[in-house]
Design a protein around this nucleic acid. Structure first.
Lengths: 142, 142
DNA sequence: CCGTATCCTGCTTGATACTG
DNA sequence: CAGTATCAAGCAGGATACGG
């Protein structure tokens, strides 16, 4: 497998590479990964850190990540049950590309938000033809 | 704006950075971006390259990317209509983090697929207690 | 050629309640 | 504490048909 593969495969929805993109886009998965990037965390802690996600959804997320070999689940046989989740080596290796993406996001999100506002304004004007009425938002572009 | 922001914001589902992750996870958006990375492409070409996606869905994807300021839409007033889509500067800047992610995916996907298989096998055995029967049929739990 | 208009379906997400 | 079970809602994605 070389990295010079023709671009045809990345256009194939069946391309397994897509599974990663799915995980990234998953509402909670990427959050969990980044939290676990700082060390093992137990279930209840995870729930608290990731703004009160319901246990069902968190479990689904964790199971999916475990199935993909990105995290491990360790059950401590104790009277008060304790389960720790931790990144695997592969999971940790995902931290870097994820970080890069997060950095890109943080630095470009303001521009994106402005672009959306401008786009929506343009749509409004196109529909009405008369932008005489005062702008919706107090945020002019530029 | 430093990059040392407390990790609290990345855990907030309201954090605007999430919009990028959503786009990445979008079924067609990241594909379109990577296709457009090689130059402007017109609508029908895009449809062919990205394995026959329906026009509605492709339009949705393109509109969303345009609204975010990641691509531009250029209409050529011709007898046979011609519309070209092209990455903006910001869109191009997304190419690199995206590429990194794709490379990570391509190099780890085999391991992930193995992990999934192992996980599913373990589940089957846990349920049955007797893995004597030959390998799965490919369909876990009809 | 480049879309829009409808209608439809499955999956993701979640609220709520219950168990070892 | 760490989940599972059940039910319900919303929305992304898509099939099909039609319009500028």
């Amino acid at each position: 497998m070389n990295t010079q593969d023709l671009p045809a495969n990345i256009l194939d929805p069946n391309c397994p590479s897509r599974v990663i993109f799915q995980r990234i886009g998953d509402k909670w998965a990427s959050l969990v990964i980044q939290v676990l990037g700082e060390g093992p965390v137990r279930f209840s802690e995870l729930r608290k850190m990731v703004s009160v996600v319901t246990p069902k959804v968190l479990t689904q997320t964790l199971r999916a990540l475990e199935r993909d070999g990105l995290i491990t689940r360790t059950v401590h046989a104790q009277v008060p049950p304790r389960v720790d989740y931790e990144l695997t080596a592969m999971g940790e290796s995902l931290l870097q590309p994820l970080s890069l993406l997060r950095e890109w996001a943080e630095s470009h999100v303001p521009t994106i938000l402005e672009a959306r506002d401008a786009y929506d304004d343009a749509q409004d004007e196109a529909l009405l033809g008369s932008p005489s009425w005062a702008g919706r938002t107090g945020l002019p572009r530029g």
